[in-house]
């Protein structure tokens, strides 16, 4: 077996194993930590696919940002150290059923689709090129969305400030 295939399967095991442990763990804080492993696995998958920029974004945004937020909110809520109650059988059954049907649907749809590699894309996914394209107005240039995002963030920030200020 090729070494790169072995690496692929190791990464996959980390991703799915972390996700499974995050869902089944009885302590909510541990679940958040397992989630970090799963997300880091996704980041290493991006490294494996030689897309360094997206891997870096994955680490910065998900591992660094979102999981830290989740851990903060776990600490801010009460009973964060307690063990969760065991879910009742009916709920486990229906969750398992919906997960299983989603899995079958996904396998069926993805497996039957003949993906073709895109030959039109002539830009190498290097960080320098991505940065250039982000501020370019020509083909595959993303200047306009980049600027619109800044307005989205401005509006979201002002909305949050007004809501947070309301007690005074």
């Amino acid at each position: 077996m090729d070494i790169s295939v072995i690496i692929f399967y190791i990464i996959s095991v980390v991703i799915t194993g972390g996700a499974l442990l995050a869902v089944t763990s009885k302590q909510i804080f541990r679940a958040a930590v397992y989630l970090i492993f799963s997300l880091l696995g996704v980041a290493s998958m991006y490294f494996y696919l030689e897309n360094n920029f997206i891997a870096a974004v994955q680490i910065v945004v998900y591992v660094g940002g979102i999981v830290v937020l989740i851990i903060f909110s776990i600490f801010l809520t009460q009973n964060s150290g307690h063990r969760l109650k065991k879910p009742d059988g009916k709920r486990v059954f229906f969750s398992a059923l919906s997960v299983l049907s989603a899995l079958l649907l996904t396998l069926n749809v993805i497996g039957n689709y003949n993906f073709k590699s895109n030959s039109n894309n002539t830009i190498e996914p290097e960080i320098k090129n991505i940065g250039m394209q982000m501020l370019s107005t020509t083909q595959y240039g993303y200047l306009l969305p980049f600027e619109v995002v800044s307005f989205l963030l401005l509006a979201a920030m002002i909305g949050c400030i007004v809501i947070a200020l309301k007690r005074n």
């Binding site: 993303y142 969305p145 619109v148 307005f151 989205l152 509006a155 979201a156 002002i158 909305g159 007004v162």
Partner: peptide
């Protein structure tokens, strides 16, 4: 992409409002 950003820019400020 522009479509989705427009959609979000339309709905997130509304939630604050």
């Amino acid at each position: 992409l522009m479509f989705y950003l427009g959609l979000e820019l339309a709905s997130i400020p509304l939630a604050a409002l």
